[in-house]
Design a protein around this nucleic acid. Sequence first.
DNA 1: TAGTGGTCTAGACCACTTC
DNA 2: AAGTGGTCTAGACCACTAG
Lengths: 240, 240
Amino acid sequence: MAGAESLGFKPLYSQVKDTLVQRIADGRWRAGEALPSEMQIAAELGVSQGTVRKALDEMTAAKLLVRQQGRGTFVATHDEARILFQFFKLKPDAADGVFPESEVLGVAEGAATPAEAEKLGLYAGEPVIRIRRLRSLAGRRCIAETIVLPSAMFDGIQVGDIPNNLYDAYAKRFGVTIAGGRETLKAVAATREDAAALGLAPGAPLLLIDRVATSLDGRPMEWRVSLCDTAAMHYAVELR
Amino acid sequence: MAGAESLGFKPLYSQVKDTLVQRIADGRWRAGEALPSEMQIAAELGVSQGTVRKALDEMTAAKLLVRQQGRGTFVATHDEARILFQFFKLKPDAADGVFPESEVLGVAEGAATPAEAEKLGLYAGEPVIRIRRLRSLAGRRCIAETIVLPSAMFDGIQVGDIPNNLYDAYAKRFGVTIAGGRETLKAVAATREDAAALGLAPGAPLLLIDRVATSLDGRPMEWRVSLCDTAAMHYAVELR
DNA sequence: TAGTGGTCTAGACCACTTC
DNA sequence: AAGTGGTCTAGACCACTAG
């Protein structure tokens, strides 16, 4: 392995991990595909099987890989089950989580506002794509959502083109793997427009979820603001 | 190690972990104290150092232990830094997180309501302690909180007795280690009383945080409902 | 300098899947 | 039966802390 010398000791397994993450980012193995076996990777990189294992274990903990005894090691997909577990934390009060349906209200390209530029790590004025949609849980419209994407990464996305499971589309159509993110939550009063869209009275309390989602290398790839009517649903957090 | 035979394979390191967790729950090592070294534990339990290491690594990941190269392995404490990171997810919009101050409004014992009993795994009517307090961030009252505890676990807690850092007190005074929990969030409109307590207009949007905190063995030990004015603060979540 | 945790290796065997 | 990941061991050496 190269790149270990000088200032600041970096363990071998960590370098192996960086190598493998880079290869996934480069599309060497696509979502759902199998990596080579531990022994093959170890032989190729000239390290022991235990060192490869530690790298793979960390990537599995980061939900980047899925390992199955007897089968192999696979690049994690953004299937609905994973999204529900990792990214969509709103659950109906009286039931288990289900994947929400979506109605796209509009898609438009424009110049990034200062706020958008700051969230996405762009310069103000760079082109961005804005998506507006309503989402429903159990047949009831309860989320009004605005999504902002850097055009440079998602060139040519169209209105008829917006599937319900966006992160899966980012991966399959644009090679962008959403690996994590950060959300901030506030309680706000519904504006007239929000209230109309969700069928509520103006001033009704809404949960505002502000999310910046990041790719494998930690760069921001999506800014999403969701306004949620939490009368019959809640946002669930595990403290560990 | 005993207890591995029959139905359902259980790895050795997992049994080692169970043994060590049980010892912490039993108070064999108190918060902040050092465990024996890997070699000593391995020798005592008759397993290899690597197996002990895997058990300790998992406990460290669960924030139960803190390990320091060259020093030793220590039982995690509920110091303010840890609480801030693991349990208190409200941050001022314009600053880093700080530990909130508290004013206790009242402490009273009573019979568990059906809702309280369900949250705490008790029978309705069993005795519980209820604590009401206001919390402030940056000198501004912004959280109204109700805390319900099973009297059986927290016998003799008094009004003048409620410190700002409750989880530290649970550990030190009652031997109850809060190891995790589950929160559900909603946006609600302030009632007249909530509004008065927080200096807001009735109907103002508030973030309602409903938390059940659990001990080492996963049993519910505290039910806490917090009403938060999120005008100048937010609830932060990392998606990983 | 002694003792701790952290990394790395090599090899054996087990559990599980697939053919 | 062959190949995968999962567990367990034993031992070497490194990085860090403390006396």
